[in-house]
Design a protein around this nucleic acid. Structure first.
Lengths: 345, 345
DNA sequence: TTGAAAGCGGTACCAT
DNA sequence: ATGGTACCGCTTTCAA
């Protein structure tokens, strides 16, 4: 930048003003500076700027692992896109259920001076203490692991109601929900639980009998590589038990749906002829056989909401900002839902 | 850090030496400084350090989009993990086939002063010029889009030979390869082409007749949301044409395999009873029905190789460093391969 | 062994 | 409207 100033024969101060468009600069000088910028190929140094301005234009994102759950691929893509459009860079930490990884990642965030941290899935909220101590704003998506944070709440109900209604319209009366137990229990209400609850409410709204519609819950924790998927085991259990007469299954995630489809496939049944399936997340649903209907998360709305929070937070510190935004789910219909079959056996 | 020095009643210089373990510091002072560090909760400021040292400990990663192809999820996870273990942070750009996104991302890298850029899939190599001008080392994975770069070459042959051999052992004689055309053609040899070539070589090594084993190539470019998958269309084409007698299909990616399985499913055929399938990448193969065999990329070896390059590069600038490392593929066997059926029809 | 001072590349205050 | 100067937090000569 000294080079630019010299080439334009002005002081560094003036050069800075011209470049940053701040304060008074004469038209002539502005032009000379701009030319000098071109000539020298000047690029502002973000490190120096950050140091002086105490801003880094960087955000941190914590998620478990896109590897085990493609849902995180979508959410991180959406958030990244929105952040990027707003001029922020993103540092990402996939903790993959390793405490060390999460702790190291948070240290990394602190070192880089991220202006906010976005929490899609914390392994252990206690790891976040250093962030809170350092006053880094935290924005949590779907989960509510930590008190002192902004939240984006995702309402599962609209999508769930559409899903149940679609099945009912096709003549289904016995519908199962195959979901996940909350992996950990440091929050009052987990997304897992809310999905289960939404299923119950949706049943009621659609006039189905709860006793005909079982809920099966299992561990969500990723299966070891090449073990049977959790959804496979749960579906096996369901289909070999007393509730085998269900004609439709709603899964708590697309990953679960994938496993359920494998179990159905293994039994030689067909979707949707023998049984209808609806997933949740709309992450890999389009890749399954048959292409599977799924309750979609509003990814880009989430990304926008996150960045909205970030901008509010960096703008005014302690102002009255809404602490929670709500977004909603919707059903994406594909080929995995059909008319209910006549009772089998 | 001034605080630390004051609390320990030494000069900032001495405090720095104690913290960074460099130069001479008396035992007593060292102890006092360490205590002061604890007491004040001091954390070094990376911005300042970067500015002074002209190092950022940050890398850039460019890929198209993990959203459209889960392969990138795995590769970025592996690279991120290795980088993190070596003390580097990562900035990621998903260009999603948008030139603007790629250009903006590269600008972001330059602003942040990344020490190297890892290239999994560049949209347009011309966008990389600014990096080259700024002497940022580029490490490319699998592809070779740019001359002045280090490369990690992935040899498809071992995995491909295992795949063909497995099919042959199960009695298959007519095997198709369903692959992708190279999306762009700015390199001498694309991974897509190398996979096709590897298939031909593998056939020969296993003594199969090339005329019985068709190769079908289509556009890899992601289908619009809820369009039929590319693999679906290609499989439709294959199975309704003169080559419908194939009993095994090797796909050029798991995404293609997913579409192929959908086409097979739609026809009411069963895998592996009627036809055997092997995917490539081992990205979502475990989620498909049935769990699908796949030629796996050596993800963690790739991550290690990338970081190895980075460390070499930052260590000595213009030293003689190997410019290419090679890694290799291997077959992961699951349930999508079985004995060849008797000729149909 | 320790400390003072300069400087990395910018920005902002205060004079002029 | 413009320039001088101090300073962001840390590292590194150089002298003591």
């Amino acid at each position: 930048m000294a080079d630019v100033a010299r080439a334009a024969r002005v002081s560094p101060t003036t050069a800075a003003r011209a470049i940053y468009n701040s304060g008074y600069v004469s038209e002539e000088n502005r032009k000379r500076v701009m030319e000098a910028v071109e000539a020298t190929g000047y690029r502002p140094n973000l490190q120096a700027r950050s140091l002086r301005l105490q801003r880094t234009y960087t955000l941190g994102l914590i998620l478990s692992s896109a590897k085990e759950n493609p849902f995180y691929t979508h959410i991180s893509h959406a958030i990244r896109t929105a952040a990027s459009a707003a001029g922020f860079s993103m540092l990402t930490v996939n903790h993959s259920y390793s405490a060390e990884a999460e702790i190291a990642g948070i240290k990394q965030f602190l070192d880089h001076g991220v202006e906010a941290v976005i929490l899609c899935h914390a392994l252990d909220p206690r790891h976040l203490k250093p962030l809170i101590r350092s006053q880094v704003p935290i924005i949590q998506v779907e989960r509510q692991d930590v008190e002192q944070a902004y939240s984006i709440a995702i309402d599962p109900l609209p999508g769930m109601v559409s899903a149940v209604r679609l099945l009912v319209e096709q003549g289904h009366q016995r519908i199962a929900f195959v979901g996940a137990k909350a992996p950990t229990a440091h929050e009052p209400s987990t997304p897992e639980q809310r999905r289960v609850d939404a299923f119950a409410i949706a049943l009621e709204q659609c006039g189905l009998s709860v006793s005909d519609c079982p809920t099966v819950l299992g561990d969500y924790f990723p299966a070891a590589q090449d073990d049977d998927l959790p959804g496979f085991k749960l579906a096996e259990q369901l289909l070999s038990g007393p509730d085998a007469r269900v004609t439709g299954i709603i899964a708590g995630s697309d990953i679960l749906a994938a496993g359920i489809l494998q179990a159905i496939y293994a039994r030689g049944l067909r979707v949707p002829d023998d049984i209808s399936i609806i997933g949740y997340d709309d992450s890999i649903a389009q890749f399954l056989s048959p292409p599977t209907s799924s309750i979609a998360q509003p990814y880009s709305a989430i990304g926008d909401a996150v960045v909205g929070f970030v901008e509010d937070v960096v703008a005014d510190d302690a102002r009255e900002i809404v602490r929670e935004k709500r977004v909603t789910t919707a059903l994406i219909a594909r080929q995995s839902v059909g008319a209910a079959p006549k009772p089998r056996a």
